[in-house]
């Protein structure tokens, strides 16, 4: 079983994602460089946080046209699991693999703090079995305000595509306090909070590990 982490120039949570995956299942994390047009054989993909290509133009905009993204698109289209975290979520939106966009935070400032999330959809490989959970995960971003037109938001709600919602006030002013969304098929998930930062008690908790464990269960079941 192999889970690939796409490393864009400017990614800075790639090592954290690789370590989190290694903690969940030793020996299965693989780094994939963004210059590679062909993906190596992997069973799931993670697009990590950071500032890919400096986030010049718009957050995620340049990364969305990186050579590796053709492979990511084919991978997603084949129905296999793709998780975008923070900058990775921005990249997936820019690439059109997820609906909506991530605008600058309402405060105009970067925000780093722990938040509480409701898991609102179990219909993804990363949240299966977590339906009743409340997760404590940190956010760290300047562009995390989820935006889409009203019709799209209504459709997302109706289809159960809102996967995570902030409890209480959102840290960034997201529409309907949305913290994470999935595509219609459910195999592609984007989220602003960082599950890879909460995988050890020594660092403040293990709620993030639940997502990686769910993914491994999914991959085992479908193997």
């Amino acid at each position: 079983m192999r889970i690939g982490v796409v490393v864009f120039p400017g990614s800075n949570c790639d090592r954290d994602a690789l370590s989190a995956i290694e903690l969940a299942r030793p020996g299965c994390a693989v780094a994939i460089r963004a210059e590679e047009a062909e993906l190596p054989p992997v069973d799931a993909l993670v697009l990590p946080g950071g500032f890919a290509y400096g986030d010049y133009l718009r957050a995620g905009a340049l990364a969305a046209v990186a050579p590796v993204m053709e492979g990511v698109r084919r991978f997603a289209d084949s129905g296999r699991p793709v998780l975008g975290i923070c900058n990775g979520f921005q990249v997936l939106c820019e690439a059109g693999l997820l609906p909506g966009a991530l605008a600058p935070n309402e405060s105009g400032r970067f925000v780093c703090e722990e938040v509480c999330l409701f898991v609102e959809s179990e219909a993804t490989p990363f949240t299966a079995g977590l339906g009743s959970r409340r997760l404590r995960l940190p956010v760290a971003h300047a562009h995390g305000r989820y935006q889409a037109d009203a019709a799209t938001l209504d459709r997302l709600e109706r289809n159960g595509q809102v996967v995570f919602r902030y409890e209480g006030q959102s840290p960034n002013g997201s529409a309907r306090r949305i913290a994470g969304v999935r595509n219609e098929r459910g195999n592609v998930l984007g989220m602003m909070p960082h599950p890879e930062r909460r995988v050890e008690d020594a660092l403040g908790g293990r709620d993030g590990l639940l997502l990686f464990a769910a993914l491994l269960r999914h991959l085992e079941a479908s193997a």
Partner: peptide
């Protein structure tokens, strides 16, 4: 809180 104080875990 405007500084990322957790990156690199």
């Amino acid at each position: 809180r405007t500084y990322d104080f957790e990156v690199q875990t």
